[in-house]
Design a protein around this nucleic acid. Structure first.
Lengths: 149, 149
DNA sequence: GTAACTGCAAAAACTTTGCTGAGTT
DNA sequence: AACTCAGCAAAGTTTTTGCAGTTAC
């Protein structure tokens, strides 16, 4: 995401917070901005490391609380992930996922060709909103032609 | 899954373990079978409760170790999930996922129409193997026209 | 007999909670 | 001034680890 895009998002973010009656604290802004700047769907702990230099007094509990708050507002997404920690993403645009079947790492990709696929509408008891594609395979590091981890 | 299918899978499972040099312990067999019998993608703890009646001395650590071992062999799948515990599935067939954007619950569905979609091949640094579709929306409980959780 | 595995208990990692002082509106 | 929030520390969960005795081969 370009710096310009980020600033525009941060501004919208401010509005959205005000609408919802949330204070605009430096912590919230910094955490949100850091999430936008992270392309790698960070875990709370990773986000914490990233934000700490700017806000040395920040606590990990605040990261958790903030992420939960923002997820409820729909400003960030909590992602389904494997492994034992939660993952978050500030990119709410249409995008798909590459999942490495060996190391479990996930990254984003976009493909206009795939965007044409419509969510199936006839599923009983489920109201489809949108759809994301997970492509499973081997990432660069685990590449084809390697033995194991 | 029918009992007959389950037995056939368990048999294949035995072969696969032998090939890999793994012992066929009662714990492993029971855990694997319990997973096949569970349609609900259980967390380790839930699987533990299910298996305990049959193996009262079983420990939770064994569940974790076993699931990791079997996942590495490709005999069970660890699923991406939101929330704070890992989820596993013994169903390795082609299927897709319904993810509730409100409560986070995930369930399986199949749709032959979607099975035709080929994994995109031109992604740089990534070798695509297969693809799964996540349909996001509202499940029956959270249904459209509800206020919140 | 050897190698692999389970159970246990302890430790580590991750997440949530309650409270108090500080910051935002 | 009222209300919301951050930081802290403690508690609660979930997951991993090391080791000794047991089991599968």
């Amino acid at each position: 995401m370009t710096p310009r895009e980020i600033e525009s998002r941060v501004e919208q973010f401010g509005q959205r917070c005000r609408e919802a009656g949330l204070s605009l604290t430096p912590q919230r802004l910094t955490i949100y901005r850091a999430l936008l700047e992270s392309a790698d769907r960070p875990a709370p702990e990773a986000l914490y490391s990233r934000v700490r230099p700017a806000l040395p007094s920040l606590s990990l509990a605040t990261i958790y609380k903030t992420l939960d708050t923002l997820a409820q507002l729909g400003l960030v997404a909590e992602l389904p992930a494997t492994g034992s920690s939660r993952r978050f993403d500030g990119n709410m645009e249409r995008h798909h996922h590459l999942v490495c079947t060996r190391c479990g790492r996930v990254s984003d990709f976009s493909d206009p060709g795939l965007d044409g696929i419509a969510p199936p509408s006839g599923i009983k008891g489920f109201t489809a909103q949108h759809l994301a594609i997970h492509v499973h395979g081997l990432c660069r590091e685990c590449g084809p032609g390697r033995a194991g981890h």
